[in-house]
Design a protein around this nucleic acid. Structure first.
Lengths: 236, 236
DNA sequence: AACAATAAATTGGTTAACCAAAATACTTAA
DNA sequence: TTAAGTATTTTGGTTAACCAATTTATTGTT
């Protein structure tokens, strides 16, 4: 058996090792919320890894809001308590790559919400942006070209119009996974792509007329086929 | 006027500059999906920033699934098309820090879903974990101590039982913002904390009995007060 | 001309030294 | 003893050199 490098795999292992090490430190030393983590140099020495590895792990935990590095001062533990940090890190370590089904399920959940919210809160500017995205999609489809991206941008425009920055962020996070899985599963056939133009138009109209209930319904209709593809049952 | 350092602010500006620079590169050079980005060294020189700055920006875009660094080979652009990348980066650059309202709105959306899904899909092991979290919360409350963290862990246990890894990830992402804003707004008073024990119990029972509709209803009830605090209207 | 072998250049990852701001320890003056 | 001032240490951030895997270019052989 060859001694392979497996650099990418290793690097993830190293990062998880550091993250769990930080968790243990917080537990063992019982660091209070708002306290400082040991310095990056100490951590790299303690865990036997490079300082850049430590910095990467810290950046990841920073993304999840657990740590906050302060220049020339130290990295501070978020003021959310030891118990929460333990639970969160435990979950973060176990996080697996999202499967297509869970992506779709989540996307539909978010999209139905954004459709309703956008209908309620959309500004005139939002409307213009959605219209632009819609036209771009139609043009691509009528030219017989692939329009997966334009489709996504139409939906992201609605997300932005929802006035909920958190949902918008979450939509962005799941979007790449959606696109790559779409292409992998060959979800979009010719009929659906053309049908979607009409569905999009109806969604747009509902948002324009500020009818949340209708916008939600039309969005649900729009996702019916995709949902059935994943779950073999109707979208309730 | 003093020439202040503003290191933290600057570093964000630098990162955005790099990210938009990368976007422009992709547009201008019209890099096809799956192609390589210019090397980190070239980018750092082109943008007049350090290579570590470039690496950080790349790591951020990696998180959003737009870039994928390959050791000793290059950083590859996700196979999601130029248009989608443009739209996504545009949004990422404009992303603002989540406000409390949007956090709560999103949390309720996710929690109602996880409650229903957990009721349908929970395993025996899930049930045990939820029970544990529930007991931990009760103990803290009965001891008259703060139990915000234990509360969150109860809800995260339900999220895990939902069997939807994507939603679980999203819950984790919004959790720190929730906790810090909770403390800022002093949302939890004594009455609610005690009342929550009963509500939690009912949610648990519904999940145990695999009654999705009831679980969702009980969860909605559980969030009623918080929602009214944010929006001054009833949770529809 | 085509292909295999080899050498050079390029790549992301890693390491270690350095920087300026910040925190701490120490000294000094009242 | 206390408070102010100063020197030292510690900190995250930055830089540049280095590493090994990879890719590309070159050379050599048939």
């Amino acid at each position: 058996m060859k001694l392979e490098a497996l650099t990418k795999n290793d690097s993830k292992k190293v990062q998880n090792k550091i993250i769990s090490g930080i968790r243990d430190l917080i537990n063992y030393k019982n660091l209070e919320p708002g306290e400082k983590l040991p310095s990056e140099r100490m951590l790299s020495e303690k865990f036997g890894v490079s300082r850049s590895n430590v910095r990467e792990a810290i950046q990841k935990l920073e993304f999840y809001g657990i740590l906050k590095p302060m220049p020339q001062s130290g990295t501070f533990i978020a003021n959310i308590g030891v118990t929460a940090i333990n639970g969160m890190i435990e979950d973060i370590l176990e996080l697996e790559d999202p499967d297509f089904k869970s992506l779709v399920e989540t996307r539909i959940l978010l999209e139905l919400k954004t459709a309703g919210l956008a209908a309620t809160r959309r500004t005139e500017e939002d409307l213009i942006n959605i219209r632009k995205a819609l036209d771009a999609y139609n043009k691509k489809v009528l030219d017989g070209k692939d329009a997966v991206q334009e489709d996504l941008l139409f939906h992201l425009a609605i997300a932005k119009a929802s006035g909920n920055s958190t949902i918008e962020t979450l939509m962005l996070i799941i979007t790449p996974g959606i696109i790559t899985n779409f292409e992998k599963h060959h979800v979009c056939d010719e009929n659906q792509v053309v049908l979607a133009m009409k569905e999009h138009e109806e969604i747009y109209k509902a948002i324009e007329n500020q009818d949340p209930q209708l916008a939600k319904e039309k969005m649900k209709l729009h996702f019916e086929i995709l949902y059935q593809y994943c779950y073999k049952t109707q979208l309730s």
